[in-house]
Amino acid sequence: MDFLEVVRRRRTTNGPFLPDPVKPEHQRLLVEVGGMAPSHFNSQPWRFVLVEDREKIEEVARISGDSMRQLLEEGTFWKRYRPYFRFSEAEMEERRDGIFFDQMPSVLKPFSRQVFSNTGQAVMNRFGVPKTLGEDNRKLVAGSPLLLAVLLDKTEYRPGELSGFYSVFGMGAAIENIWLTTTELGMGIQFVSTPMEIPENWKRLQDLLKVPDELELMAVYRLGYLPENQRRPTIDWSSRQRKRISQYVFRETCETPEADPGREAAR
């Protein structure tokens, strides 16, 4: 695949993976490309844990699903991420950011825009939406043949100092290398984010992975090969829109937006 095509086709996988184990050579390639990322003074602060053990994956899945259910039942999820939710194609086209809820049970569609109200929250809980999404989340993680934990060396990762920024910057580059490589390999990847939202659940993951004091657990991802026809979860969203050039690029100073392709030629 052409490199630019890989960049354009990069996606987050919301659906299930094939049950096939990830080939050892592909696992090695993923961590190798991660290690090729730039870092401050070549400090390479990242550490990776590859997890294939079914019991561990099942436990991570239980923690993730329970975290999702709790966040939804309490309304924390909706309140925390409200600025990013879109409920129509028109809104998505205008904003060109966030996530568009384009799939949900018909019984819930009339209440989609009320999700941020107490009434909407009560309706969602009454219909068992938190339990449904929590179970969907558990199944997705449990059905993943490979998990990848990303950690930072605390001798470099010192929040509040420049080294902390440099470490996170380098880690982001390492993850992007891995993410792009999954696209080339016909694989998918998704951030297992919900446990991070609940401190005690994140601690459960740290204990499960036996993270030593000198390392900081930063993220966990699920990976696997993609089926030809991906089945979407019960409630799902898309996020393929991107801002126009004029919305995020400026020329010379922040006072002059860059013209969108085509508009400049029309002048």
Rank of each mutant, 00 (worst) to 15 (best):
G186F: 01
L209R: 06
I245Q: 12
H26S: 07
F116L: 15
T119R: 13
A219W: 03
R242G: 04
V51T: 10
G15Y: 02
P195G: 08
E252T: 12
G75M: 04
V115D: 03
F41N: 14
V249K: 10
A90S: 09
F191N: 03
V168F: 00
K139N: 14
F85E: 13
Q27F: 00
M218S: 06
P159F: 02
V192Q: 03
G164W: 00
R82G: 03
R62D: 15
L140T: 06
S144D: 13
D260E: 15
F3H: 02
V115N: 06
H40F: 05
E216L: 06
T181D: 02
R86N: 07
L151W: 03
E5K: 14
F111Y: 15
S112M: 14
L72G: 08
Y84K: 00
T76A: 14
T181M: 13
F87Q: 05
L4N: 12
S163P: 02
R240M: 10
V168I: 13
E200K: 06
E52M: 09
E59D: 08
E32R: 14
W237F: 15
F111I: 13
A90N: 04
F3Y: 13
N177G: 04
L148F: 04
V192G: 08
Q44K: 13
M1H: 04
L152I: 07
D213V: 09
A142C: 10
L223P: 03
L208A: 07
Q44D: 06
Y225P: 05
E89I: 01
S167R: 01
L223C: 09
L209N: 10
G188K: 09
A173Y: 00
F127Q: 06
K23G: 01
F48R: 13
K243V: 10
E216P: 02
M104A: 15
E25H: 08
K23V: 04
V123T: 08
S112I: 11
G34N: 00
V49C: 05
V220S: 12
S144C: 05
E89H: 07
S39A: 08
E74N: 14
P257T: 13
I63N: 05
F111S: 03
F111C: 13
P130D: 14
P199S: 09
Y84E: 14
V49T: 14
G34D: 08
P38A: 07
D213T: 12
